[in-house]
Design a protein around this nucleic acid. Structure first.
Length: 524
RNA sequence: ACCCCUGUAGCUCAGCAGGAUAGAGCGGCGGUUUCCUAAACCGCAGGUCACCCGUUCGAGUCGGGUCAGGGGUACCA
């Protein structure tokens, strides 16, 4: 149950034609939630906001509201009743459903199988993973998917690059194509392929693709990110979807020839230019199989397709989206999130992503130096559109100022208290709020109760970082409470109530951390 | 040239759909432990919200422009 939602429907009943907005009250002000309804109405009929506010305030009555107050210039503030809060805390499970089981597919990482995963993929993995968890916690049926581009020009270049490394191993000179893959990491792969006695280019390609697929899967596994589906582009192609799509587009007169290539009229549907689907030498560009792939997702009954891409793919959003619109789908069936780049920072300086000097470049490298909980948490501390500075010095610190441990520590502290506490299983805590009275306790209760609201905001905006911030907030509320209120004491009733309170706290901490994919240990 | 992201405290960033005296963490300074985990808590210092114009009763938030940083503009992905 969300208090915010209750207030909103209460006011909507009184003022059905207004769009009610409920806000949090600033920390030092009276009350918990507020509305600017009076300001809006007063501006509309040129009356005095304070008078309007007082009028409205008089009409409001509800058991959850302890007090309604009016504040200049015309805010109406609601103070939620303590009894109501405590009852809510002890009787509600804080689960909610705004998704009604709607199928959503979140596709992320989907790195080309041509090299190791980098740290931008790490961010995408953390965000995508959290997003799926978030959506499921909010009642959607979300699945995760990893798409492998194993059929295009990039894997051809990969195969050729590996073949050149094989020549090199046999004493020849490697002539890697200029646009090919020059990284040293292919030497090890080439050696492996040589030992298997593979020399056919097609077989090299398949071997290399498998190799990197396995590598990506292993590293992501180490990172604690698993996918519902792994889909290879070649499987889409084998089903003939690509040709089908081309035919569909042609039937709708959305394709034309120019300069020996086949173009799609995306410019009519919001893209900047028309795009090439089939090149002069009869090769498909990325776009055509990509359209086919997204139609395949739709065919699998997903109602919303969320793609998480890096900033370097920003220009492709319009192309894909307009293609889907051209085929008759609504633009909002596809939501593309651009998760911005990541920079590593050490000693206050940005690290250049150089392969030399043992600089961290891959997710594997990063995980060898920083625990995965820390990596995930840090990756989820920024909004998606924010460029992220990953502070290695801070990340490596096991103590003090590392915010991951701040949250984990709150949880561990609670578990420790519960281990020490006498057993109270048989007698439930008093639900009336009689024994939850200290300001530190109330503050904690209010923070806990806000969880569904935060989750709702995070889902609405596709922004997992909101959960991260909330958890830090919740941990702070608990540590603050801990500083002044003793849980285990002489008064049985107070002890029972406080144990129930911190159990709820631990429960929400645990659930929030689960959403982020970060562990929440019982002991530290 | 055009497109996307960013510009808020010394540093890294929040500020949700325009609202009240702009917040947090880190760093700095000063305190707290016979007491359930000090990986904690409390206090102090620190701001022309890049700049200009506009819309509004009200702008860090919306619109236009300027400047700065990053990314992108393939018949590669």
């Amino acid at each position: 149950m969300m208090i915010r939602q209750e207030l909103k429907s209460l006011l909507t009943k009184l003022f059905p034609r207004d769009d009610i907005v409920i806000n949090q009250v600033p920390k030092d002000k009276e009350g918990d939630y507020s509305t600017n309804l009076a300001l809006i109405r007063a501006a509309r009929d040129k009356s005095r906001p304070l008078d309007v506010a007082r009028d409205i305030a008089k009409k409001i009555e509800h058991p959850m509201i302890q007090a309604v107050t009016v504040h200049p210039p015309g805010f109406i503030n609601f103070e939620i009743s303590r009894e109501y809060l405590v009852k809510l805390l002890f009787t509600d499970d804080f689960k909610f459903d705004i998704g009604s089981g709607m199928k959503i597919l979140v596709e992320f990482v989907s790195a080309n199988p041509t090299g190791p995963l980098n740290i931008v993929s790490a961010r995408a993995a953390a965000v995508g993973n959290a997003l799926v968890n978030m959506l499921n916690a909010a009642g959607f049926a979300a699945a995760s998917e990893y798409y492998i581009n194993d059929s295009g020009r990039q894997t051809e270049l990969l195969a050729e690059s590996v073949r050149q490394r094989l020549i090199e191993l046999d004493g020849g000179t490697a002539e890697i194509p200029r646009e090919g893959y020059h990284g040293e990491y292919l030497v090890g792969l080439a050696r492996e392929i040589k030992s298997k006695d593979i020399s056919d280019l097609g077989e090299i390609r398949e071997y290399a693709v498998q190799y990197f697929m396995n590598d990506h899967r292993r590293v992501l596994d180490d990172f604690g990110v698993t996918f519902t589906n792994w889909i290879r582009e070649s499987s889409i192609r084998k089903k003939g979807y690509v040709e089908n799509v081309l035919r569909m587009l042609e039937e709708k007169d959305l394709v034309y020839s120019r300069d020996g290539a086949r173009w799609i009229r995306t410019a009519q549907f919001g893209d900047k230019d028309d795009r090439v689907l089939v090149t002069r030498d009869e090769r498909y560009t990325y776009l055509l199989p990509d359209i086919a792939y997204h139609l395949d997702k739709i065919k699998r009954d997903y109602r919303v397709l969320v793609d998480i891409w890096g900033p370097d793919h920003q220009a492709q959003i319009k192309s894909l989206q307009s293609s889907l619109v051209a085929l008759g789908y609504k633009a909002d069936i596809l939501k593309v999130l651009i998760v911005q780049q990541v920079q590593l920072r050490k000693n206050g300086k940005v690290l250049k992503m150089s392969k030399r000097a043992g600089a961290i470049e891959t997710l594997d490298d990063l995980l060898s130096q920083v625990p995965r909980d820390v990596v995930k948490f840090f990756m989820l501390m920024r909004s998606n559109s924010q460029h992220l500075d990953f502070d290695l010095d801070l990340a490596v610190k096991q103590t003090e100022e590392n915010p991951v441990y701040y949250v984990q520590y709150a949880h561990a502290r609670i578990k420790s208290i519960i281990r020490k506490a006498p057993q109270h299983d048989d007698v439930p805590a008093d639900v009336t709020g009689r024994y939850i009275t200290e300001p530190e306790e109330i503050a904690l209760v209010k923070t806990i109760v806000k969880y569904p609201e935060v989750l709702e905001d995070a889902v609405r905006t596709y922004e997992p970082y909101m959960i991260t911030y909330y958890l830090i907030d919740l941990a702070r509320a608990f540590h603050y409470f801990y500083g002044t209120c003793r849980v285990i004491g002489d008064d049985q009733n107070v002890t029972r109530a406080r144990i129930a309170l911190i159990q709820k706290t631990a429960d929400i901490l645990q659930r929030g951390m689960n959403v982020l994919g970060v562990s929440c240990p019982d002991r530290m």
